[in-house]
Simulated assay, not measured.
Amino acid sequence: MRATVLDPRNRALVQAVRLALLLGGVFLWWLLTALDLIPVFFFGDPVGVARQLATWFASGTVFTHLSVTLIETLLAFGIGTALGLGIGLWLALNPFLAEVFDPFIKAFNSMPRLIFAPIFALWFGLGIWSKVALGVTLVFFVVFFNVFQGVREVSPVVLANTRMLGAGPRQLLRHVYLPSATSWVFSSLHNAVGIAFVGSVVGEYLGSERGVGYLILLAEGVFDINAVIAGILLLTVFALLLDIAVSFLENHLLRWRPTAGQTVAASA
């Protein structure tokens, strides 16, 4: 089956449809609350949410909280990715050790890791490192399993031919294993961005004096649904921005891959 390639001329139409869906959803939300078809107390209203965001940014208080959450997220994302990449490669290239550690890894991965948040708060205090530790445990396994599988998916024929050409372990790692794992890594990183935010916000819920999660917790305490939604939207926007940054890096590092258009043209 041939892939369906979107005509570049239709990209503007795609963006227009996306914008229309977004604005239509916001308008429907406002209309339902304005007509009292849904209670504002439980669902908020877009005007109140926009007013809350404007108040946060005008006062400047949100920047301190946002910077804390972003630092926690970036640290958890970076450390978890590095550990997942390194340990995933190490075990994938060592079948004996992979077999030894397999039950331990599966057991730890099966644990609901959010329950470790109070333990990390006890170990690392209520600062950023308890949130980073929680985020690392969430990001690590997403990256680890993708890297491990990516290395294991390398074709034996490619490995045999590369060895016949005289490639040593370093050449195999650089020219065969890493390129094979890279696409798997980036597919996991898109998920890891959101998961890193989850770790940071959950940690802030359980004990913190700063962060967007802390703002949301305060708003929930006084039943301010508009502030809760405003905090969620704020986190969503910055998660999307980080995802765009990952996509940019992916396109740069994987520019050697043929595009969908080139693939279809070659198969035509």
Rank of each mutant, 00 (worst) to 15 (best):
W29S: 01
P39D: 10
T4Q: 08
R9K: 15
G80A: 03
L173N: 10
A34G: 06
F148D: 00
R2L: 13
A219Q: 00
L83F: 08
S188Y: 02
L31K: 11
V193E: 04
F57W: 15
T4E: 10
L138H: 03
L13W: 04
L172M: 15
L126V: 11
G84M: 04
L178K: 08
T61N: 10
N109M: 14
T33W: 05
L254Y: 04
S187T: 12
N161P: 00
A133S: 12
D45T: 07
L242C: 10
R210I: 12
L241R: 00
G24F: 07
P46A: 02
G261V: 07
V154K: 06
E209K: 09
F124K: 05
V143M: 00
F77G: 06
T81Q: 02
T137W: 02
I38D: 06
V142E: 07
F108K: 09
P258A: 03
G199P: 04
S130Q: 13
F77R: 07
R2H: 08
M111P: 08
W184C: 01
I38R: 06
L6C: 07
L235H: 09
T81V: 05
T81M: 03
R163I: 13
V147Q: 01
A268Y: 12
T259K: 03
I229C: 05
T55C: 00
L31T: 12
H190S: 04
V14N: 01
W129N: 10
S187N: 14
G150M: 01
M111Q: 07
A107C: 14
Q52A: 14
V100Q: 15
L138E: 06
Y177W: 14
I128Y: 06
M1Q: 09
I105P: 10
M164R: 11
G213T: 09
A268H: 11
L70M: 15
V264W: 07
P156T: 08
V176P: 12
G60N: 12
T263P: 04
H252P: 00
A260K: 04
R2V: 04
F197I: 10
H65Y: 09
I244V: 09
R51E: 14
V222P: 08
F186C: 00
F27H: 00
S267N: 03
L93T: 14
A265M: 06
N191V: 12
Y205A: 11
R163H: 13
G25T: 04
T69I: 06
A160D: 15
A34V: 02
T69G: 11
N226F: 08
L13D: 03
S187I: 08
V237G: 06
N109Q: 14
A196N: 05
L19V: 01
S59M: 01
T69W: 09
G211L: 05
I71G: 02
F104K: 00
V142G: 03
A265R: 10
A245Y: 06
G84R: 01
A167F: 15
L134Y: 05
I71P: 05
L22N: 01
Y214R: 11
F120I: 02
W123I: 13
D36G: 13
L138R: 00
F96E: 15
L93D: 13
G127R: 02
